[in-house]
Design a protein around this nucleic acid. Structure first.
Lengths: 257, 257
DNA sequence: CGGCGAATTGACGGACGTCAACTGCTGTGG
DNA sequence: CCACAGCAGTTGACGTCCGTCAATTCGCCG
């Protein structure tokens, strides 16, 4: 495994505070692996043996019930996922699937649990990570229960715009089927909702979106700091507030359970 | 503060594993307080200074947006809440309101953060608690995104039935307005949905529900262990599986972030 | 050029929210 | 003891949002 990859992992909030020894212990027994697009890494209900760290590519977390399927989160590098199941040594509640060819680091679950009780700093980092993930889900649930489809879409566009520089023109980061599932609607309805947003100054050409009347869109969306994570992207932030202001977050949560 | 109350707190998963010294430190600077019904303990967006422990009564966690309001969780004793905000020293994302007159223990947030870095056992317990809360929310979000209102209600009834002994007759634990908000529907629609369940052998007289054809209801509800927490109530469970099998859980999560 | 999948559009029906009227219960005060 | 106010719950009518199915268009790659 390349040093540069190790350093990227070490820089994660989850590992930044732990001792060198802890970090060596965890990475010594780790697997670094590449998966093609469309690979199911983990099926919901499966026993979870590893903590996954996405180093390159895109991973989708999804839930299923009764032949329906929904996207709970879409992850980009560098992100960890299924921490909660690892901490509790429990079954996964979500499936994980690569959207693109991805490079993934797999850290032994038992090792993580063992190290937590020995390195309080690491245990605290895990608790903080889980707390951040929890709060991301609270936001998602409020978003889902309190807003209608059009409002969710409008807020999503505002969030993406801010994350991509606030220039009022940006690209949708996923194909529209996936985006629809993330927003909790059907692809057909996403099309119609995007069409409906022309009245609010939103133009869509393929994957590129331009917002010609930001104020009008905001009036519709009514973004709320208690639902939307609206931090503009800042480089290597430090200090207290940054614990929840991570680089490159994707809609509901960047790092996921 | 009475010893018996202290012991109830000590018995919580969150505090069971920590040292006596840690526990004394935390409870020394704590407030024990009674609140009348309908008191807002915490408004969403407020700075959170305490970890709350509900010892007696009922507390509702709710979220608001644009004059809409939704219930995210309803807590019964003994439960902790807003742990996530305390761990991250962040604003609360939900409001907390007493439904009945309640007795609540308030533990200093700074003390909790301080103690976490000194007592690895406690930090691990916090991480496990957060992981359990996270998984509760994943279930809620899947429940919300994947099921329709009637299906959510049917599964709620099945869950309540199991939690109250599986005798196919039980009482709704909250008034119907609150239940509707918890299930993500309007009170009117809850009425209609309950009426619709007659076809599946569900009879409702005031707060008491009887299920005359459990199999029919199950065929409609299609309960799923990856969404519904269907553990029947067991007394003082021990061992690994119990980490997520707590006494007296209420629908989505028992203990809440 | 042909073909495939993604995206769009239209038509339709069902689920759900809203408004309003009505019922039934409970506690209060005459 | 009864009348009545107040509130939770129910029921009905209606409109909107949203999912489904089907047909069509668009863009990309062979």
């Amino acid at each position: 495994m390349r040093d540069i990859d190790l350093e990227r992992v070490r820089a994660l909030p989850l590992f930044r505070g732990c001792s060198d020894e802890t970090f060596r212990t965890l990475t010594a027994g780790a697997f670094l692996q590449r998966f093609p697009a469309g690979t199911t890494l983990l099926l919901e209900g499966d026993q979870v043996d590893f903590l996954y760290v996405l180093l390159d590519g895109i991973v989708e977390l999804q839930g299923t019930w009764n032949d329906r399927e929904t996207t709970l989160s879409i992850l980009r590098p560098v992100s960890t996922f299924i921490l909660a199941a690892v901490v509790l040594d429990a079954d996964g509640l979500m499936s994980a699937r690569t959207v693109e060819r991805s490079q993934i680091l797999m850290l032994s679950g038992p090792a993580i649990r063992r190290v937590m009780v020995e390195d309080a700093g690491f245990a605290v980092a895990v608790a903080q990570e889980m707390a951040g993930c929890y709060r991301g889900l609270v936001r998602s649930l409020k978003n889902q229960k309190l807003r209608g489809g059009l409002e969710r879409l409008a807020n999503y566009l505002i969030t993406q715009n801010l994350r991509q520089g606030g220039l009022n023109t940006f690209n949708l980061p996923h194909d529209k089927r996936t985006l629809a599932s993330l927003l909790g609607m059907t692809p057909e309805n996403l099309s119609r909702s995007l069409a409906a947003l022309v009245d609010y100054g939103v133009e869509v050409h393929g994957p590129t979106v331009t917002i010609s009347r930001p104020a009008a869109l905001e009036r519709l969306a009514k973004p709320d700091p208690l639902i939307d994570n609206h931090q503009p992207v800042t480089d290597t932030p430090t200090g207290k507030a940054q614990r929840e202001r991570w680089p490159l977050p994707d809609h509901p949560v960047r790092t996921a359970g």
